[in-house]
Structure formats: C-alpha cells, structure tokens
C-alpha cells in the first residue's frame, strides 16, 4: 500500500527534472519565431509603402525624370539638389514656412498653456471645459480650411461683419499678402491650441499639491510659485507637445491648399505646397523628388531630436 503513493508523486517529478532543458530551448526558439512572425508583416508593409517609395524618390532625385513626358530618366548627379539649394524661390518658401511655424506654434504654446493654467485653477466643470476646448482639434483640415475661408470672406464673411459692427474697417483676410499668412497662422492656432492645452493640462494636474502647500507656508508669491514650481515641472511635457507641433507645422500642406491655395501670389506657399506645385503642376518629378528628400532629411533630424528627448524623459 505504501508503494503506489511514492510512485505517483515520484513519476511526474522525474519527468520534470529530466525535461526542463528541452522545453526551455524550444520555448526560446518558438518565442523568437513568434516575434518574427508577429512583427514582420507590419515591417514589410512599412518597407513597401514608406521606405521603398522614399528610396525611389531618392533615385529620381538624381535624374531629370518627368512623370508626364515619360521617356528614360537621365542621371544628372546632384544637379537637382544644387538647383534647389541655390533657388531664390525655395528660399522665399523656406522663410514663409519658418514664419508660419514659429508664429503658429508660438501662439499655440502661449494660448494653450494659458488656457490649461486657467482650467487647472478651476474647481468645477473642468471636464466639460476641457471637452469643449478640444473640439477644433478633432476636425479634419478640410472642414477647418473650408469653414474659415467662408468666415474670412471679405464680403459676406462673419469676421468682417463683426469687425464692422464694432466700428472697425473691413480686412481682406485671404487676398492681401500680409494678412493671408496671418490668417493661416490664426486658423492653425485655432485648430491646434487645444493640442498644447491638453498636454499642458496633463502636466499641470500632475504637479504634486504638497509643493504648493510648502510654498504657501513660506509665503512665496504667486509668480515665484509659478516660476519655481509650475513651470519647471510642466516644461518637459510642454516641450514634447511643442516639438510635435513644430514637426507637424513644418509639413503643413492641406490647410494652405484649401484656405489660400498658396496665394495671393506666393505669399502663403509653404515648402510642402511648393513641392506639390513642382511635382504636380510643373511635372518636374526629379526636381520635386530632390526637394522632397531634402525636406525628409529635415523631418528626420527633427524627429530624432523629438524621439531622443521623449526617450530621455521616459527613462528619467
């Protein structure tokens, strides 16, 4: 009677002690196999739809290929690149883009942080307020562009109508050189201020309350508390939002296309919009590719800064 008991307990034990290395190895093997089969479909799609097209563009950028003329692509070395980098037209667009990026992202940061700060000081209705403020951000650039075009119309636009009712003159928002770029900045600011606000608000609500309590025991002034507690703690997260917006603003195309179509003249043509004109209206595919590759290089550098910073923030 005593025999079967040790047998039954002994048996699985023996099996277990004899086998561990085998399942261990096969598990590691199957883990690697699993990782490869799970990751490679997504990777292959990205390689086919993102990397391959860019490589093709890189090849075209060294040729005089034109998508409409057809015919063989002749290798012309760095011709396209030197042409673009020395072109006064491109310099104008670069300046326009810079003014737009700095103006729009700057305004968004100040306004977004301001709104977030005001909301964070409220005790009631924060959820409702935040939700209402976020609406513009979720709209498609098409809807935003079209609608502001209607509101900024010089004749029947509601903005001029309102200016008129408080006794101010009419402004040709989208048809004057200076105001067109300003309008673009205003519309982009309207749409993306909520983005900065959302992230700033997350930072502000994460500041530990005991820091403020300690500061108020020391009778520190409001400005002192803001400068020494709030800003340093929120700044890292705010910077993430600002960098993200700057990259997005640098690539801007759709809002320009719909709101001003680059005009009047070329006053609101950003780099992206200019590439579109070179590629799809001028049909200089080779030149446009070189132009695009240069822009991609800038984006890659900006993205690397952004990602490194993000990574540092996550680990720190």
């Amino acid at each position: 009677m005593s025999e079967p008991v040790p047998l039954t307990t002994d048996h699985p034990g023996q099996v277990a002690s004899a086998t561990p290395p085998a399942p261990g190895r096969s598990r590691r093997l199957s883990d690697r196999w699993l990782a490869v089969t799970f990751i490679s479909p997504a990777m292959l799609l990205l390689l086919a739809m993102s990397v391959f097209p860019l490589l093709w563009a890189l090849y075209l950028s060294f040729t005089d290929y034109s998508a409409t003329r057809g015919g063989p692509a002749n290798f012309i070395g760095f011709g396209n690149y030197t042409a673009i980098l020395t072109s006064a037209q491109v310099h104008t667009r670069a300046l326009t883009t810079l003014i737009y990026v700095v103006g729009a992202v700057g305004l968004q940061t100040v306004l977004g942080f301001g709104i977030a700060y005001l909301i964070s000081r409220r005790t009631h209705g924060r959820g409702v307020l935040t939700t209402l403020f976020l609406v513009p951000m979720m709209l498609s650039p098409v809807v935003v562009g079209l609608f502001w075009r209607f509101m900024l119309d010089a004749q029947f636009g509601v903005v001029n109508s309102m200016l008129g009712s408080i006794g101010l003159g009419q402004v040709e928002w989208l048809t004057r050189q200076r105001t067109a770029l300003l309008s673009l900045i205003v519309v982009d600011t309207w749409q993306w201020t909520p983005f900065i606000m959302l992230i700033a608000l997350a930072g502000l609500t994460a500041v530990p309350k005991y820091l403020y309590e300690a500061a108020s025991i020391d009778r520190a002034s409001e400005w002192f508390r803001f400068r020494t507690i709030t800003l340093p703690l929120v700044w890292p997260l705010l910077l993430i939002a600002v960098m993200f917006r700057a990259i997005e603003a640098f690539r801007l195309f759709d809002l320009v296309y719909i709101l001003t179509n680059g005009g009047p003249g070329v006053s609101t043509e950003t780099l992206s919009f200019h590439i579109y004109k070179v590629a799809f209206l001028g049909f200089n595919t080779g030149t446009a590719s070189a132009y695009g590759i240069l822009m991609v290089l800038v984006v890659i550098v900006l993205t690397q800064f952004y990602l490194r910073y993000l990574n540092k923030l996550k680990e720190g």
């Binding site: 195309f253 590439i275 991609v296």
Partner: peptide
C-alpha cells in the same frame, strides 16, 4: 524607425507612391 515613417511629409511620399 517605425514612428519616424509616420512623420514623413505626405506631399513628399505621395510623389513616388503615385508613380508606384
């Protein structure tokens, strides 16, 4: 790398995609 592909300017990507 994966996230970087998401930041590519659409106007630039659309040129080779169009040809492809």
């Amino acid at each position: 790398f994966i996230l970087s592909t998401r930041f590519m300017p659409p106007v630039v990507v659309v040129i080779p995609i169009f040809l492809m």
